[in-house]
């Protein structure tokens, strides 16, 4: 049996509030369409309450041995970079975005071998581009840089 902590109390509380919120959402649905979701939400609420009660009853006042975030700073940087990549890759093209993203990500979270990161990025991106575009015939977003340089859509 897992050891429970105050985190579990918070998590269970969030689940209880979430199931109530979704139940309110489901009230707007006609009864036939809502039957199954309501059944699931009712069970979710019931088990969340059990989880909450059990967490309150058994939660240890001591701090859990393992921290929730192993390194919150690096996690935030990684997340921001992933969101940034998802934002720009459909706009500027896969090749350009990825060639920049891989070394920037690696260096931002601590890699100091910049040349190796850039080279690995070039090799990986070229390989992925060859597999997807040349071998699998997938359509990727047009490369903005090529469009600017050549005046045609790549």
């Amino acid at each position: 049996m897992q050891k429970l902590s105050n985190r579990d109390v918070i998590c269970a509380g969030v689940l209880v509030v979430f199931s109530v919120a979704v139940w309110i959402q489901a009230l707007a649905l006609p009864s036939r369409a809502a039957m199954f979701p309501r059944l699931v939400i009712a069970l979710l609420f019931g088990f969340s309450v059990i989880y909450l009660a059990r967490s309150v009853w058994r939660a240890s006042p001591e701090r859990p041995a393992a921290p929730f975030f192993r390194n919150a700073g690096r996690l935030c940087v990684a997340l921001m970079l992933i969101v940034g990549y998802v934002l720009i890759f459909p706009r500027i093209g896969f090749f350009t975005a990825t060639v920049v993203f891989i070394p920037v990500f690696s260096i931002a979270i601590g890699l100091r071998r910049i040349v190796a990161a850039v080279l690995a990025s070039m090799v990986f991106t070229t390989g992925a581009w060859i597999v997807f575009v040349l071998l699998l015939g997938r359509r990727l977003p047009p490369e903005k840089i090529l469009t600017w340089v050549t005046g045609t859509v790549s």
Partner: peptide
């Protein structure tokens, strides 16, 4: 640290080319 962004790129590439949906 180099493997992680490569996985992200593959995930995004694979998913984006299914429905072209950001």
């Amino acid at each position: 640290v180099m493997l992680a962004p490569m996985i992200v790129a593959l995930m995004c590439l694979g998913l984006f080319t299914v429905n072209n949906s950001q």
